[in-house]
Amino acid sequence: MTDIGLVGAGFVGSQLAQRCAEVGHRVRLLDRDRRRAETVAQTVRDGAAATEVSVVDVYAGLAGCAVLVEAVSEDRACKDEVLSALASVGADDTVLLTTASSYTVTDLASALALPAAVVGFHLMPETKHGQLVEIAAGERTSPSSVEQAEAFAAEIGLRVLTVGDRPGRIARRLLMPFLNQIVQALDDALLAPRDVDRIVTLGLGHEEGPLAKLNRTGIDDHLAATGRAYELVHDPALAPPPLLARMVSAGRHGDKAGWGFEGLERA
């Protein structure tokens, strides 16, 4: 049994809390919105009585954790703030995992006190093939940190892929141009949104339509991620299609905003 410190009780954070608790790790949760952390902790406890999930208010409460995970919003200022706070409570043998996908690990770790401890831990959503985590070492990450991250991922039942420190890693890097091309096809009025999802599910065999997926995971998040990846590698396939920016300006962020791509068939 290990103590896991988890910052950020959003979508990824709550999935991780659940997985950690299921295998008997003690989880300490911190979110700037304490109620959010409480809700997640309660949900996890309701799911399995014997689990130990607590909520802490200050970073000092995470001292002594063997694994520290940052799962906060994909925003640079946010990531930097949380990572430096985590680095200040980490011990020499602590591993510090970042769930960021569109910043390089090297870049995020370079300003920290413990760059050797920082490992990229990028989670992709659950599919029928299981849930994947892409583990990436930055230029200054130590091999033992990577091993710790791989062992932790395997313990909590993730499928592990150890990859290079590239923006978007592999799965997302490959998926973003595919999604951008779809958004552009809509702007070109090639077909209706509902028909895109029908073709990709019925014809290409995906479980979830790409537009339903964008609605679920956030159109604003996709715009930000593909925009940042574009800035780093200048591949035109990553350039955000104009329709994305228009939708985000209009507040069409997807399910969380109540509207995004409209007229899809209900799953």
């Binding site: 093939h129 990859v163 592999i170 799965a171």
Partner: peptide, 30 residues
């Protein structure tokens, strides 16, 4: 083009064919 992107990733040495296939199925939902 998605397939070609994967082939180019393989050719650039990002990962092996098995690993990219894992990223594409378990990661990207193909």
């Amino acid at each position: 083009p998605f397939e070609n992107d994967c082939v180019r990733a393989l050719e650039a040495g990002w990962a092996t064919a098995e690993e990219i296939d894992l990223a594409v199925t378990a990661g990207a939902g193909f």
